[in-house]
Structure formats: structure tokens, C-alpha cells
Design a protein around this nucleic acid. Structure first.
Lengths: 216, 216
DNA sequence: ATCAAGTTTGACCATCCAGTCAAGAAGCTT
DNA sequence: AAGCTTCTTGACTGGATGGTCAAACTTGAT
């Protein structure tokens, strides 16, 4: 029940109301939590303010007292999410050991899937819809970062420190595999039996997979 | 523009209206095509009959002349999809060469992502929502098939013909990687530059990945 | 050409939904 | 306790949405 929470990521530029009182802080958090639950399973259009209000244990007008609109709640959630989503890739260290760095990146992404599955599904929903709200994030933030790390991977490959593989597909494969455990958790749970955790054995498997793939 | 179409998959049990006239056949197909487009990007609740009607170039009442309800259209699409979705796994041949069979399975899944990306996103949307409409399919059809093939993979591993890996995670990895190219196409396109096809180089990469993973 | 069956649609309805508002309840400060 | 601010909500509105219906239009067989 006690889901971990993303850091608040107070963006200086955005017009976020700073929570003044204790009640403000508490209720805004409750609403974001409820909204995350609803948006991540039904998508933006499929979610209703009534659902969010009910989930939050508040009345609908009360929800709109804390946020200007349904859209504002959604934007807030996305803003917090996106920053966190880049961290694992940012942390990849050019000076480190190539294989260890890539494995650590994979492991950090898997941790995000484990700890923030709802955020992962929120992101997935957004991309499925054609990424209309986060296009600028992908072009302006994610892409340059990926390009940068792709260059790094190419250098590592050229130096013979990892196998010569397409760095973009390598990144994509890590996103695909780690996200899948969160986004398709419902399917995995039904197939592996309800007693099992979807992520059981995932790290071992992915460890073996990338060890074999990266070996020069 | 000429998107390939799934086989009609006339389920004997379901209460599907058999198209009588040429017009019936044509318009039902147009509607399904339009609905696939809309449902796959917005999800069930996010899609509207007006959107579907506009996309189909028909009036809303006319759409409802061919299908009983929004739900009926959605059910019809899912039914056609699910049957096709199992085929690649069904085709895995116990008598064949293990590595070749698994590679062929991966390649067939990748072809589905290439040829039916909208169907892939429809499926993804369904799972994201917790798979409420296809739970019985997963439990009664997919799961037994996966269990069966998992046993086969275990036998192959025990015989030393492939590396000893968890067969469930192997299957999950193939689903994750192939689906991702369809479901996250928007993101991939933005990162790889709009000139590139999302699937460019995917087969080569996945070929290398599974060759290295499976080698005994 | 005629007629019955199949097809199409404008007008309509009930419900849902995001968002408003004014008035009341609860906190906070003195 | 008074008085001010913050919080909460019942009642409401305008527009969207799934679905209906009867009347009109096509189509095809004779």
C-alpha cells in the first residue's frame, strides 16, 4: 500500500502552485497519488475526475480546489516523472568500466520498473497515444542524452571493450525489457501464476542476457 | 495507407453477425479499420463513436447499424487479434532445430509488430488496463501454450542444445522486444530521427542478441 | 417500373463529465 | 471568543457521448 514516491522535482519555470499549508501539501499529494493510479490504467481521456476524487477520498470540487483542471494534474504527474526517467541514463559514467556501466544502467531501469510501475504505465500510455504531451521532452531532453551515450557506446565498441553493437538498439532493448515488466505486469502475473512476482528472476535473466551480448 | 488486415477469424461460438451483402462486408471492414485506429491510440474509454464514425467516413447512426455498440466493435477487434497473436508461438516446432525455431519465433513476432502495429497497440492498451477483457484468453489459451513451450525449452536446455535459461523470461523478452517496436514507435521515431523507420536494424540486432543468448 | 429489403441520416434523449459557484465548516491567530 | 483565512461541498451548467428512432433514400430482383 505504501507506494514509494517520486521526488518533488520543483521546476522553477513551470507555474506550479507552491503548497502553502500542511493541508495543501498533504491533499495535493493524495490527489496526485490517486490520479496516478487512475491515469496509469485508463489513460488521460479514459480517466474521470470523479474516479480520481473517489480514489482520493475527496469531493470533486475539492480536487479542483487544489488543481486548476484535470489537465493540470496530469501535467504535474508527467513533469515529476520525466525528470526521474532520465536519471539512470544520466548516471552512466564514461570513465567507468563499459560492461559494468551498462549493466548498472539496466539494473537502475529495472529498479524504476519495480518501484514505480504506475509511473511506467503512465509513460507507456503517453507514448501509445503518440506522445503528444511529451514530444518536446523526447526531442529536447531524451534525444540529446541518448545521442551522447550512443557516441560513448560506439567509442567503447571501437576500443574493443564491448561487442560492436548498434547503441540505439541496445538502449531500446533495455527500455523495452525493463518497461515491459511494469507495463505488462497484468499479463505476466496471469502467465506465471498469481503466487509469483512478475519481476522474479528478471534481474538474473537480464544479467545473463546482457553479459552475453556485450562480451567483446 | 493500405494496411494489411488480419484474417477474419469467424469464431463459430460468438454471436457475430455474418455479413450478408457486399455493402455489409465492405462497411463492416471500414468501421473495424477506423475503430482499430482510434481504439489503438486512445484506448477503449478514450475513444468515441464520433471519432470512429468520422474516421470511417460514415455517420454515427450508420456505424451503429453495423455494430450493436461501441463495445461490440471493440470485442470484434480483440477477437480477431488474439487468435493471430498466438500463431507464432503455436508454430514453434518441437522436432526442429532449437536455435532456429526460437529465432524463427522471434522473427515472426517482429513481423507482427511490423505489419500490425495498431493491433499491437490495441493489445498493449488492454494489458495496461489490467487485461479485464482478455483475462480468460490469457489464462485459458495463452498460458497453457506458454507452459507447453516452456517445457520444450527446458528439454532443449537439458539436452544441451541451447543455453540453460529461464524459458518464461525468454518468452517475455521476445514479447517485450518485438512489441516495443510497435507500441513505442512514436518515441523511437523521435529519437532515431524522422527519416528512419523504427524497425530499421531491429532484426539484425535481435538476431545477434538471441544468437549470443542461446548458444549452449 | 415496381416493390420489398437493405441502407442512411437528422433529430432526439438520457447520461456522463469537466468545471463553477456560493455558502457553509474547519483552522489559525490574536 | 472573535475574526480572518483556508478548506469543503451540494447544487448546478454547458457541452460531449453512447445510443434510439422514424423517415427517407438505395439497391436489386422481378
Amino acid at each position: 500500500m505504501a507506494a514509494p514516491r517520486l521526488p518533488t522535482a520543483q521546476k522553477s519555470g513551470s507555474a506550479a502552485k507552491a503548497p502553502r499549508s500542511r493541508i495543501q501539501k498533504r491533499n495535493r499529494q493524495i490527489i496526485l497519488d490517486a490520479a496516478l493510479e487512475v491515469f496509469s490504467t485508463h489513460g488521460f481521456r479514459g480517466a474521470t475526475l470523479d474516479q480520481i476524487a473517489t480514489q482520493a477520498g475527496l469531493s470533486k470540487p475539492n480536487v479542483l480546489y487544489y488543481f486548476d483542471s484535470k489537465d493540470a494534474i496530469h501535467r504535474d504527474l508527467l513533469t515529476r516523472l520525466l525528470d526521474t526517467w532520465l536519471d539512470p541514463l544520466r548516471m552512466m559514467n564514461p570513465a567507468g568500466d563499459p560492461q559494468a556501466e551498462i549493466m548498472a544502467y539496466m539494473r537502475r531501469k529495472l529498479e524504476l520498473s519495480r518501484d514505480f510501475p504506475r509511473e511506467s504505465r503512465l509513460f507507456a500510455n503517453e507514448i501509445l497515444q503518440g506522445a503528444p504531451r511529451i514530444e518536446s521532452f523526447i526531442r529536447d531532453d531524451l534525444r540529446p542524452l541518448v545521442d551522447d551515450k550512443a557516441q560513448l557506446l560506439n567509442e567503447w565498441a571501437k576500443a574493443g571493450r564491448i561487442a560492436p553493437i548498434d547503441p540505439y538498439h541496445l538502449s531500446i532493448s533495455i527500455w523495452a525489457l525493463t518497461q515491459h515488466y511494469a507495463d505488462f505486469a497484468a499479463q505476466i502475473a496471469m502467465i506465471r501464476g498469481d503466487g509469483h512476482d512478475a519481476l522474479e528472476g528478471a534481474e538474473t535473466f537480464l544479467g545473463a542476457l546482457y553479459t552475453r551480448l556485450l562480451a567483446p
